[in-house]
Write a protein that binds this DNA or RNA. Structure first.
Lengths: 186, 186
DNA sequence: TTATTACGATACTTCAGGTATCGATACTAG
DNA sequence: CTAGTATCGATACCTGAAGTATCGTAATAA
């Protein structure tokens, strides 16, 4: 196991750097078994790590999944010559991400858990939604309320399709979604 | 307790008609405690009924919630002089329903459960989505794929807002949603 | 060498969905 | 009025999963 090498290393045994391994095992397990059956025990086993090690890093399953999604999404590509192009690129990017194996199910699952867990809802909002919302606000020059509305529309639509069919939205419908949002953005 | 009076009553003690009581207790419990803490035990207690009685009528918590929602929604008001008016009326109707105490949380919760339970997903689709989808297809004269897309957009958006904020969407944003869908419908 | 901290393993607690059992009750049929 | 049948409430139980506690062992700094 490789180690975390910090400039000022504190005393004691250093934490083994297992984040990447655990994230990969998490997505893999969710992909294969679904969110509900992807227990922390199974994720730990798949990562070759003890369950206690996971709970030392993330305080709950929801927090683990959230961190995993933040890692998987990375920064949004808010590129384009116009606001329309930026919005179009962003929608297609999130649609593609949600279509990746494990990510859509993990997203729908943690969202679902968050509905009845205010602490998790706040975490999800702060870690996953706020950064993209702020970046979009900046890139589009739209007020917060309007950007939040667009996020509800795009992410809600994609997750609803994923939840009802078990499959990510096909390209034709993603095109329709882009078109619909652009008509309103203009 | 009043009884179910069937024309040809079968032998044995007749079932007490508790559906309405149980549905009311279900929405009330979900409203007060949230979906996850609204356990079948608590719902049964609130309805003044044994848990076994509930499981004799509905095979799972998901099935109970689904039946409860079907009962709460009732038939959609697909009225209006034009397709635009029909769509507008339908969107405002479902938005208002999801805003009623307990219904939004119950909907989000059972949707959430369905993501990882194919049997429940099929039940939810058959009992809750298909009737409205078919009626909309008929009323709007749009192909199935397009109606399904509209349902994903409208319901997905409303549930995402409900899930992320804990509050139903306000009137201004429902207006924006109607406007957005109508721009695409035209 | 010692103090400190993380590690894996394992047992445990809590809670919720769902099942099984049982005596009591409300009917129908004769 | 009696026998048969199916439901009722109550209760105990099983299973699975999140999260906690404990403990001996391993890795590092001083």
């Amino acid at each position: 196991m490789d180690r975390a090498t910090t400039p000022t290393r504190p005393a004691g045994r250093p934490r083994s750097s297992v984040d990447a391994t655990v994230f990969a095992a998490t997505l893999d397990t969710v992909h294969q078994l679904g969110y509900a059956h992807a227990t922390v025990d199974r994720i730990a086993a798949a990562a070759g790590v003890a369950k206690t090690t996971i709970y030392r890093r993330w305080p709950s399953k929801g927090a683990l999944i959230t961190a995993c999604l933040v890692d998987a999404f990375g920064p949004a590509p808010l590129t384009g010559a116009s606001r329309e192009e930026i919005m179009s690129t962003a929608i297609r990017w999130i649609a593609a991400k949600i279509g990746e194996p494990g990510i859509g199910a993990a997203f729908a699952g943690v969202f679902t858990d968050a509905v009845n867990d205010p602490a998790l809802r706040q975490l999800l909002s702060a870690q996953l939604q706020d950064p993209y919302q702020l970046a979009l606000q900046e890139a589009l020059g739209e007020p917060e309320k309007r950007v939040l509305f667009f996020i509800d529309v795009v992410v809600g639509t994609l997750l609803h399709r994923m939840g009802m069919t078990g499959e990510p939205m096909d390209d034709a419908d993603v095109d329709a979604l882009v078109e619909m949002v652009l008509l309103t953005l203009r």
